[in-house]
Amino acid sequence: MSASEGNKNTNTEPWGGFDDNIIQGSGSAVIDMENMDDTSGSSFEDMGEMHQRMKEEEEVAAEAAATEDEDGEFLGMKGLKGQLGRQVADEVWQAGKRQASKAFNLYANIDILRPYFDVEPVQVRNRLIESMIPVRMINFPQKVAGELYGPMMLVFTMVAILLHGMKTSGTVIREGTLMGTAIGTCFGYWLGVSSFIYFLAYLCNAQITMLQMLSLLGYGLFGHCVVLFVTYNVHFHSLFYLLWLVIGGLSTLRMVAVLISRTVGQTPRLILCGSLAALHMLFLLYLHFAYHKMVEGILDTLEGPNIPPIQRVARDLPNLASSVVNATVKSLAAAAHSQ
């Protein structure tokens, strides 16, 4: 700031000013050291900042010295004042910057995400309804809203529904809580499958972004929520299969239609949509049967009375997971064969 001030300053005595300048330079460093000892604790961050600041000041001083050498004009008394003022201003500015960056870091992450949550209730409602309506338009890329409010809320709703299902089915999970399992399952499915399909889409040259994929799959979970909510409370297997085919199928078809419209070529379409459809439908099947309340009456008729309802343990999970993997691998293999 005041470096230019110093340059404008005209002093006629070359050597005196030069000495002054050197003394000023070392003096300022000494002041800095003192300040450092007084104000900062033993925190490494502070030390780092101080070090950086000292470096910067040295650079500035060197620059100033260089310009002064060129000009042959030197700082006098006014220059000293200017330097001091500059130092104070620098100090204030640095402190302000530190505060601001701290406050900014706290809210930066929120501000980055804010655009994705910019929705109206009506929009959310419309998108929920649209998630069940497959559109037969595959020549032109269908629009996918990049928004995360709906998917997030649907995932949390599904966590709540899963908790309900686990509780009523008497699921016992060793080395873990129901809550953790439910959250892990839902978020794991949402994020994991989105990333997987995004990766496949990248390989198949489909035009879809990660955000759109998250939004698409998130809204696709609406069908799952409805089906699970109904079937955890009404225990008819035929009803479940009907809902699984109709509602789960509709939401899957919708996603498949969107993906088809954004992919070119038969084989990529088959790979992408086949894996997505298989994963999505099998996930619903898994969620239903893993945490479904066994109706005691059926068990009684099958295995005789006085047998407690089957308590599902987490040991069941690998079988089902492997079945999902098997199905995926099979579908992929089929797709590869057809090439």
């Binding site: 109206e120 209730p121 959310v124 809320m153 908790l163």
Partner: peptide, 17 residues
């Protein structure tokens, strides 16, 4: 004012659970 429903829904879910 236009987004109250969106804010109330998670609150509803939270207390419901």
């Amino acid at each position: 004012a236009n987004r109250k429903a969106l804010v109330v829904y998670p609150i509803f879910l939270f207390y419901f659970v």
